[in-house]
């Protein structure tokens, strides 16, 4: 029997990728029951593109009793949409960041636990082959004890609601800290004990263009300590200019007592110079294993087990973000966990 999936909002364009990854799973694995979106026009458009139906309300789509729902609404609406799913007994694959505050994340984890439904945070980086191979080598002890990690998850100003904290909950720190923060917890099997952040607002021309009179953080160096004393830094800045060859990167340099590893998740790429674009561009062919995060979500629903990436993982990453903003405000490190 196919796993029935509802899509709640395409505000985050990752919903499109998740839908396509699900449709690429072996025939008969997934049935997309439809799409609901606060923007009815977008729901119609995406339903047409994916060969499914648009629903007029969230209640209506949840009444179809899907097994799971993909929540890709604006960050601040993750809580509301997830709680509605939990109340309807529907499992959730929620776009990152799980929530914009620790309180929201906690409420989501509790609601899903209470309702006995799956809650998975979409952290796709865990599903790329090179990341999985690095994890194997770390687990085998090839690098010894990891004592430091300098990392980046650069991006380009995404514009739209991402640049409006009313909907996004914050800028670059909200958007681009959680991927690597989660990867390191997963790779090293360790928790964070403290966070310090240096954050800049409206630093980049693209931001100034996107935000109008608002201010949004677009530069950040987040420093973290792990429970083995390891030193970590994450550059989450939206620092790639429009003229740059690609959207950004995910790079990790891990220093261990027995060796060093440098992971550049999207290094497998072509460089293309074209008069049509007037600049050098990259085309990347990195792929995710077994349908990536959506594939894992579907398998977890089928097998009636918790997904490998949980709501708690999303909560821990959200703690890093909230701690980072608090730290930048106070100018001092903030102890973790927050809850």
């Amino acid at each position: 029997m196919a796993v029935k999936i509802a899509f709640l909002s395409f505000a985050h364009m990752h919903a499109n990728g998740y839908a396509r990854q699900m449709l690429e799973l072996p025939k008969g694995t997934v049935e997309i029951v439809g799409i609901w979106d606060r923007d009815p026009a977008r729901a119609k458009k995406m339903a047409k593109a994916l060969g499914t139906k648009a629903f007029a309300s969230r209640d209506a789509i949840l009444a179809k009793r899907p097994h799971g729902a993909v929540v890709c609404s604006e960050n601040v609406r993750h809580r509301e949409d997830t709680l509605a799913c939990a109340a309807a007994g529907v499992g959730v694959l929620c776009e990152k960041p799980l929530a914009t505050t620790v309180a929201d994340a906690k409420a989501m984890v509790e609601a899903c636990t209470h309702a006995g439904v799956a809650l998975m945070t979409a952290f796709p980086c865990r599903f790329y082959g090179p990341a999985l191979r690095l994890k194997e080598q770390l687990d085998a002890g090839d690098l010894g004890e990891i004592v430091g990690a300098a990392t980046t998850n650069h991006g380009r100003q995404p514009g739209g609601w991402f640049a409006d904290p009313k909907f996004s909950g914050g800028g670059a720190v909200m958007d681009h800290t959680v991927h690597v923060a989660d990867m390191l917890r997963w790779l090293l099997g360790r928790e964070y004990t403290r966070v310090y952040a240096a954050i800049g607002y409206n630093r980049f021309a693209l931001t100034k263009k996107a935000v109008g009179k608002r201010t949004v953080d677009d530069a950040g160096i987040v420093s973290l300590e792990m429970d083995n004393g390891a030193a970590v830094s994450i550059d989450c800045s939206w620092s790639r200019p429009a003229e740059y060859s690609t959207w950004g990167d995910v790079k990790l340099e891990l220093v261990g007592t027995k060796g060093v590893a440098r992971l550049n998740l999207f290094r497998q790429r072509l460089l293309i110079a074209s008069a049509k674009t007037g600049r050098l561009q990259e085309s990347c062919w990195a792929d995710e294993k077994d349908g990536g995060a959506p594939g894992e979500f579907i398998r977890a629903l089928r097998e009636g087990r918790p997904p490998s990436v949980t709501g708690l993982d999303g909560l821990r990453a959200t703690e890093v973000v909230e701690g980072a903003y608090r730290s930048a405000q106070s100018g001092t490190p903030v102890a973790l966990p927050l809850v």
């Binding site: 004592v147 300590e225 030193a231 830094s233």
Partner: peptide, 9 residues
């Protein structure tokens, strides 16, 4: 200002 973390052995 300056902030730092590290490992010394």
């Amino acid at each position: 200002s300056v902030y730092g973390l590290g490992h010394r052995d």
